[in-house]
């Protein structure tokens, strides 16, 4: 406890923190993101309504416009959909699922990419060659297409009864398995640089095993760029999830993410209830924009050339 305050101070005083406080864009995006994360985490307790509990839905309140429009009701700030679900509550719950899929797939991709990149860069030879050829092939296709294919294969491999419950896992896997390449390439590159340095030579002379050298000595030194990739990747993962759900191969309507909500709203475009589609779309766009802006800032802040 005694060194907690100095530690806090050194974090506050670091270059990164200074650059963060100086960048208005970064501070605002971070605040927006923080608010969205908290909303997502506590959605079940702070949402005005539980959109999945039929007992709470009152069909007389369906298709209400937002509260400021004529006929709106302040109990439903952003209006209700055709089944009387509160749009605001749906967005809160949807954001929870979108962010869950986003984070889980980023973690999956990062762990997989870092491990494979470390192995390829350190061992070299055939392991490296095979890994990099796979990476080349994957990179030559647009990520959305790869994710769609993996998604299709996984869903095909499951019995149709299990598809609804396993949608979350399938999405995480298909997005994670699509995005590991970037991590692997970066980590492989920096591992190859680190591998030739003297401290690794020293560790080897001391008889340290290969695994220990990779985990203890190389890994901490190649993790820096991974953080930047992960941040930018989070935006992409959320977007990919939304796209897959929008295309109807992601989260089912019983457990909607932001993409599913937009898809549902899209079906009612011509009936004039625009709020069912516009608000989830805006939430998604703000979320992705904030992540991207923060990622851009982080990339510049960690880039020694720009200091």
């Amino acid at each position: 406890m005694s060194n907690f305050v100095p530690m806090l101070y050194s974090v506050w005083d670091s270059d990164i923190s200074y650059s963060f406080r100086k960048s208005r864009v970064a501070v605002i995006s971070a605040l927006v993101l923080l608010a969205m994360f908290l909303t997502a985490i506590f959605a079940p307790s702070i949402a005005p309504q539980n959109p999945f509990d039929i007992a709470e839905l009152d069909l007389f309140d369906s298709e209400l416009p937002p509260f400021w429009a004529e006929g709106g009701n302040t109990a439903y700030l952003l209006g209700t959909d055709t089944q009387a679900r509160d749009v605001l509550s749906s967005i809160m719950h949807g954001m929870r699922i979108s962010l869950l899929v986003g984070f889980a797939s980023v973690i999956l991709a990062a762990v997989m990419g870092v491990t494979l990149g470390l192995l390829g860069g350190f061992l070299g030879g055939i392991v490296d060659a095979v890994l990099m050829r796979i990476a080349d092939v994957l990179l030559s296709f647009p990520p959305i297409l790869v994710a769609l294919l993996i998604n299709g294969v996984l869903r095909g491999a499951l019995p149709s009864s299990a598809q609804a419950e396993s949608a979350l896992i399938v999405l995480i896997l298909s997005i994670g398995l699509t995005n590991w390449v970037q991590y692997a390439r970066t980590v492989r590159g920096s591992t190859m640089v680190e591998r030739r340095k003297e401290y690794i030579e020293a560790a080897r002379t001391l008889g340290t095993g290969k695994v220990a050298i990779m985990m203890k000595h190389i890994l901490p030194n190649v993790l820096g760029p991974v953080l930047v990739i992960a941040t930018i990747n989070l935006g992409m993962a959320v977007l990919t999830e939304a796209t897959l759900s929008f295309l109807g191969v992601g989260m089912p309507p019983t457990q909607p993410s932001l993409g599913t909500l937009i898809q549902i709203g899209n079906e009612f475009l011509f009936s004039g209830i625009w709020w069912v589609v516009v608000f989830p779309a805006a939430a998604l766009a703000i979320l992705v924009l904030a992540v991207n802006l923060l990622g851009d800032w982080l990339r510049d802040a960690l880039n020694p050339k720009l200091r």
Binding site: G235, L239, A242, T243, F246, L284, A285, N292
Partner: peptide, 8 residues
């Protein structure tokens, strides 16, 4: 244009 999803 880069942040707003194309389907939106």
């Amino acid at each position: 244009g880069i942040s707003v999803p194309t389907f939106v």
